[in-house]
Design a protein around this nucleic acid. Structure first.
Lengths: 234, 234
DNA sequence: GTGCTTTGTTGCGAACTTGTCACCTTTCCG
DNA sequence: CGGAAAGGTGACAAGTTCGCAACAAAGCAC
């Protein structure tokens, strides 16, 4: 539990009612997710870009910029385009309207909803994303590369690869955010410590070491010039 | 019991006395097993590899290659290493000698034995091996290492190992989470008390003591550098 | 009490990890 | 093309981790 914190899916909850946020956050945490919250669209967009959450729960009704707009912007921005979005709507008939707009949220749920249902839908979306149908969420499998977090084990085409603790964490974080670019700063925050004073070039060194050890599977580690690194979509 | 033959467990009986083989085979078949037999070590090894039986009943006294030798070879060969072995010995005192050799048969039974007892032991071993359905959940068996939690008893290849209370708890916790890395903090919480103020290095010391006492079975205690310890998957 | 076992702590050294730097190579762009 | 910026690479020194042994304290039987 403690050792695997860094791969717990991180979920951004966007809602302007603190009570709703609390309720959702409580249930999500109980289900083993990390939670971060935003009260309005502006903060939501900022956090989505900076913290690179694995999924966003987005209330349709928001002050200032409304949920629809936020959704659209998130989809347009490459840094956040891939993140699944679950829309919260107050009334059922709104769903139809929203669907008609085709703005590409991945699921919809109407208030009031049972926390259990929300958790189920979130798990579903995350599972779908990780390709592992019905698979263990702690185990990432991308073609010949398998990352087993609780076991702290990585294999490439069935062959075990020996990674150090840092390398393992770096690979896990990248793999978990497959397809999304992670800036060096973002990686330093998530793989190293919260406010690490480490040089960003250090990330490059670790990427190099990972590539060396991963052999064939190194092809997954894309460099995005001027931005950061990305775990290849496939 | 079982309707389709191919799911009946197949048992290889190795004994040089045809009468003994007949007796055993008769009783095993009556109990719903398929039986194949070998009169000596050489044939036994060949059949073990080719027919991949679910369990082997092995007489200690054999012409040419003796039972001990056969047992050792079976254990070393990856194709047969996982097959449970029940050793037949002519006299009770031989059991001690055999145990001393630590060659990892899974059970021992002395001649003369009641067929019913043999069948019981075989069923036990098979049950335990198959993911422990209906098996004793308080008893962990990993190859030659047996941890009997309620009895506070640990044996390696049939030989009892004397562990202190702390050592026993540590081993049990690790074994129960086989394959998953446990951080030192996690272990301190689970093996020691909830909010123990004990130094994490203490865990190392206990691991060392465990390894010392477990002898051959120490190979199960993996160190995962920078993370913690893990009970090896196999 | 005395002697024995258990258990937590400490110090040492070897092996491993890891952040940084200097130096290349590649890419970008006018 | 030429220069600048970004990223790859190898080396290295400082830091960390872990096994081990010795020690000290606590518990326990007699």
């Amino acid at each position: 539990m403690v050792t695997t914190d860094f791969v717990k899916p991180k979920i951004l909850v966007v809602d302007d009612e603190p009570d709703a946020v609390d309720l959702i956050a409580f249930n999500l945490k109980a289900a083993g997710f990390r939670v971060t919250a935003a009260p309005d669209g502006e903060v939501a967009l900022k956090k989505a870009r900076q913290e690179s959450p694995d999924l966003i729960v987005l209330d349709l009704m928001l002050p200032e910029v409304d949920g629809l707009e936020v959704c659209k912007i998130l989809r347009r921005d490459t840094a956040t385009a891939g993140i699944p979005i679950v829309m919260l709507t107050a009334r059922a008939e709104e769903v139809d309207r929203v669907l008609g707009l085709e703005l590409g949220a991945d699921d919809y749920i109407t208030k009031p909803f049972s926390p259990r249902e929300l958790v189920l839908r979130i798990k579903n979306l995350l599972r779908r994303r990780h390709g592992g149908e019905g698979g263990d969420p702690d185990r990432l499998q991308i073609d010949e590369l398998v990352i087993d977090v609780p076991r702290h084990l990585v294999t490439v085409a069935g062959r075990a690869v020996e990674l150090t603790a840092t390398e393992f964490r770096l690979l896990s974080v990248l793999a978990q955010r497959r397809g999304r670019v992670q800036s060096r700063d973002q990686l330093l925050r998530d793989v190293w410590d919260y406010d690490s004073l480490i040089d960003t070039r250090t990330v490059d060194t670790h990427i190099r070491r990972l590539r060396e050890k991963l052999g064939k599977a190194a092809r997954f580690l894309d460099t995005v010039r001027g931005v950061g690194y990305r775990f290849a979509e496939s």
